[in-house]
Amino acid sequence: MGVIKGRKAVASLMFYVLVICLCAIFLSPFLVMLTTSLKTNSDAFTIPVKLLPRKLVLDNYPAALRTIPYFKYLMNTVQITLFSVLGQLLVTPMVAYSLSKIKWKGASVISGLLMATMMIPYTVTMIPLYRTYSQLHLTNTYIPLILPAFFGKAYYILIVRQFFHGLPNSILEAARIDGANEFQRYSRIALPLCKPALTTVAIFAFLDAWSDYLAPLIYISKPNRLTLSLGLQQFMNEYSVKWAELMAAAVLFVTPVIVFFLIFQRNFVQGVAVTGLKA
């Protein structure tokens, strides 16, 4: 009896050691980012390399804000992100509603096509879209980055559709009997009910827009219109890379995302799990 108990204790201790090691591994890049940002550049390049700064400095942060017009880029990024989120929130539930709560033949066709569009690599559609926007004189505006959000994205539609599937039809049926038309049923009953799913969509849309790289890379070339992710890249265009400064800029770029994640962690987890399991 005692032996078994002892073995169990050892096993659980081993398990904790494993978890702590894994956590340390996954956290180490964040740690490196943070500590490097608090070092002087010459400290970062001194052997032996130490994880912690020899002398704690905050200079890299103001310096990083000067090297690139950080607040300008921040405003640009926020602008793109907000419009993208808005677009997704307007369109996603509508389409999802059509696919799961209206009985029509197109629903299954569209559901199939949704899956198919998720398989189209961006590079395949990139060139014709670029040409079109370019001919419409829309490069160097945010329209190419925002516009697609107002037409829905397969992944988000699937999240909300999945959620709608879980709603009993009887509620909508009752409203129909009360004489509510389709739009009223959607806006007064379905939409308020799918709030959790929409929160998830908003979070994903926020992250996608915030981190987007390839589209801004292609469409934005004027320096004052760049986004933060492109701005970060500018540190690499110098003849020598100031790593401590770059890490400070990265901390500033990543922090909002981490805060956001910690607040909405539950929605994240559900969103990812739902689409992964049921799609």
């Binding site: 602008q79 907000l82 419009f83 808005l86 929130l89 160097n140 505006t141 939409l191 908003a202």
Partner: peptide, 27 residues
Amino acid sequence: MKNFLILLCAALVALTACSGGQTASST
């Protein structure tokens, strides 16, 4: 959700207003 949307719209309006000149010229 509605509140959230309203908030979002308000933020957008404010943002567009403060960077108005630039958005206009960019479009």
